[in-house]
Design a protein around this nucleic acid. Structure first.
Lengths: 234, 234
DNA sequence: ACAAAAGTGTTCTCGTTACACCCATGT
DNA sequence: ACATGGGTGTAACGAGAACACTTTTGT
């Protein structure tokens, strides 16, 4: 026996939602699709799964191809299988989302795609079902980040508490009390205070912190509950 | 343009984890695989995706085929794409899990598969990567049920608070204080007290409740936090 | 000196937990 | 009458939320 008989084969693709944070709002990296159909239209970065690749492998490859980054946070979001989602030929898509430090991304790596960052609230018209994929990705990120410390993945190695707070405020489109916020994040024991300060955004300067990687791995599952009333999120 | 060129096509399948609760412990419905390879071995219920089907559609079909049930709770778990997961031919699998009232299931419908219920703690050797799929399903169910009121899906229309408590205790393998438990579930406002009692398991009898479907839909996202210290779950 | 952002403590409230007794009924 | 499981109330505690002033320093 070498094949299953009387079954239809189809294409399988990966699509990656690449999230970044610029200090103000959550952004998504989009590209101009490189081939027909819909060539030149805005699209998520993606690609077909190769014969010897698993999903995670393929997603990493695609991410590397566009951003030059390895070892970033990458999580499977959902598989999309509407028979009509690709008009040319049936293609199922396994969507992943990545959280990257937006400053590590170097545009020149991928001139071919003319990528651009878009604020999550102002996404242009996208091909196929990519708008829905992003919508689901945004929801899942919000949901997960309310419970787990994943947003650190969007910041550089060294960051300040006010920066972290802006990140949460940006993602949940809300204001947070800085006293409660700093108490909460420090109480997790996940942060290590550094000696130097960030001085560009204030006269006094804010101390840098870095992640305690050890504890981050260990306590990843710990519920953070940074967002008051997280249960009120849609 | 009718096809993408130079890409490999592959098979896509659905596998369903069917959860049930017998009053004591969480169980999974497994079948004897109906065709080669591994014919006759224990397996999740599954099937290939047909040309005109989406994933949810295919999952519902497969579930109906085995259990005769429609309209049950069904959620996508994860897509599995290891190139070697099926030795015959590359097949990706999109796994779903279903929560059913174990008493609605009628065995005779599906003699072909010789299905059996197995306690989640005593799963036999399974084909391919199905053991891992179940492991992930069990984790996700526990995770999700700690936050959302989905376990009602495992009970009949009418159920008692002690039954509901047994369900939570079974799934989390823990004991719960009945006073706190009943206060918590009643405080959600999701339950409607009925006039009649269940009398088989006690002399006094326990009042039946039913779900307030309206509020259940509306408050589905509400965090229940039935399990104390849910954040300590792995 | 003043403007601008960083940093820090306390009180109040409310949800969570721990805990023990009475109730209804079938035998 | 008694055994069995169902049902209920209260007190102590701890986490979360609200809230305002002092510090640092560049201009």
């Amino acid at each position: 026996m070498t094949r299953y008989s009387r079954q239809t084969r189809l294409l399988a693709a990966i699509d990656c939602i690449i999230f970044g944070f610029d200090g103000q709002e959550l952004k998504v990296l989009l590209i101009h699709r490189a081939f027909e159909p819909e060539k030149g239209k805005w699209s998520l970065m993606g690609g077909f799964i190769q014969p010897d690749e698993g999903f995670e492998e393929a997603a990493s490859r695609i991410l590397l191809q566009l951003t030059g980054l390895k070892g970033v946070y990458l999580e499977q979001l959902h598989a999309f299988g509407d028979p009509a989602r690709d008009p040319i030929e049936r293609t199922v898509s396994v969507a992943y989302f990545a959280l990257i430090d937006i400053h590590k991304y170097e545009k020149q790596l991928s001139e071919e795609y003319h990528p651009e960052w878009f604020p999550i609230g102002s996404i242009p018209k996208l091909i196929f079902d990519h708008a829905r994929i992003i919508e689901m990705g945004k929801e899942k990120l919000r949901y997960k980040a309310a419970l787990h410390p994943i947003l650190f993945e969007l910041l550089p190695e060294k960051f300040t508490i006010p920066q972290l707070q802006s990140l949460y405020e940006g993602i949940y489109e809300t204001g947070l009390d800085k006293r409660n916020f700093s108490r909460k994040v420090l109480s997790t024991g996940l942060l290590i205070k550094l000696k130097d300060k960030e001085k560009t955004s204030s006269k006094k300067g804010a101390f840098y912190y870095k992640l305690d990687k050890r504890r981050y791995q260990a306590k990843f599952q710990a519920f953070l509950n940074i967002i008051p009333n997280a249960h009120k999120l849609s």
